[in-house]
Write a protein that binds this DNA or RNA. Structure first.
Lengths: 198, 198
DNA sequence: TAATCTAAACCGACTGGTCGGTCGAGTTTA
DNA sequence: TAAACTCGACCGACCAGTCGGTTTAGATTA
């Protein structure tokens, strides 16, 4: 009935699920931990999700939706391709600084994608869409003459991989290099490589 | 006693362990699967390793040792820093084409490093050492004037991350882009960015 | 407007299958 | 002859998912 209660409850569950996932990994993520962390009961969680896997697949959805809104907004605005690329990087820097948890979860999602077809298919779609979004920007940059004549697919792939590599910072000590300065350096470096000089 | 038998047996076990790890991930890697895949018995495996975890920690050692030999050789040879960087990239391309399994295992090792302190410490050391190796190359390139004046740590980190990103190709469809062409493009791109122009 | 009803939402003790690891009694190998 | 195994039964901890029961909020009735 109450639509917003359902949404709120699911968010409550997925919040806990993310937390547990980052700390313990998928296989060691105990439903009882999610129960505890969500302040709900086992029955409540199984009321909303029919299985652990379904819950975690929905966690992917949740974050994809959340990010898509802003990503699409960046592409659709009127700024120059180079500006859009900068905004893209800046968005991820901001997100990381606000809450690095989703980035820490990436490792687990990749691991899941390796073993499980459903997770693989889901993430494949996410990344394909993300790639197309970056390709669009590059494409327009090349056409407008702002960028060099690049292999669009390759360039987009490289940019995506470099953005995703932000997750490195959740895993290991990077000897004093902060995400912010690292990502900003990378941004400049990539832009220097693809902008046409005159 | 027989040193080489022990080494051979461990290799036999670790071979199977890697195989099972890539297919199922650490938590779902069944000791019984390793038994099957190694053509040994459970008793034999527990004769060499006291636990599953110890076995997989040794799997890291095994590959680190194997790679270290060649990596150190690249740094110690007399070639120019830019040549050394190229060799470094080429080495990983070759390794991937010979056998991508160890790269597929990276995802799992990262996942393990996130949850488990022992794995984290071990991998942290590996990557610190790798970073220092790259830093050495950059350092010499800057000093000889071959490279621009770069932030050495940052550049090395970026190079390492880009090399490790080879593992992306074990996870997702990259829309027709092959590891070889991707890595070669990245190599050229990075070199173009750090070489001094005249 | 209080009493009654109903279904969605929620609770938590319990279970059944799984899997690292053990063990003991034997067999092969160098 | 001791180290290096094999074989297979076994155990005990562990945990996803179940299920019978309870609460809650809003609609219906009287």
């Amino acid at each position: 009935m109450n639509e917003s209660l359902q949404t709120q409850r699911k968010e409550q569950i997925l919040d806990a699920a993310l937390h547990v996932l980052v700390q313990n990994g998928y296989e060691q993520a105990r439903m009882d931990d999610v129960v505890q962390s969500s302040n709900l009961s086992k029955g409540a969680i199984y009321w909303y999700y029919k299985s652990k896997k379904e819950m975690y697949l929905d966690l992917v959805n949740f974050w994809v939706k959340r990010y898509s809104v802003i990503l699409n907004h960046i592409v659709e605005e009127e700024a120059s391709p180079s500006r859009q690329l900068k905004d893209l990087f800046q968005f991820f820097i901001d997100q990381y600084e606000t809450d690095p948890q989703p980035f820490a979860a990436l490792t687990e999602f990749w691991s899941m994608a390796q073993k499980d077809d459903e997770f693989n298919t889901k993430l494949q779609k996410v990344y394909t869409h993300f790639l197309e979004l970056i390709e669009d920007i590059i494409q327009r940059g090349v056409q407008s003459g702002e960028f060099k004549k690049l292999d669009i697919r390759m360039t987009a792939l490289s940019i995506m991989v470099n953005i995703e590599s932000i997750n490195w910072f959740t895993l290991f000590d990077t000897h004093g290099v902060s995400v912010k300065e690292y990502m900003q350096t990378i941004t400049d470096f990539i832009l220097a490589g693809i902008l046409k000089k005159h």
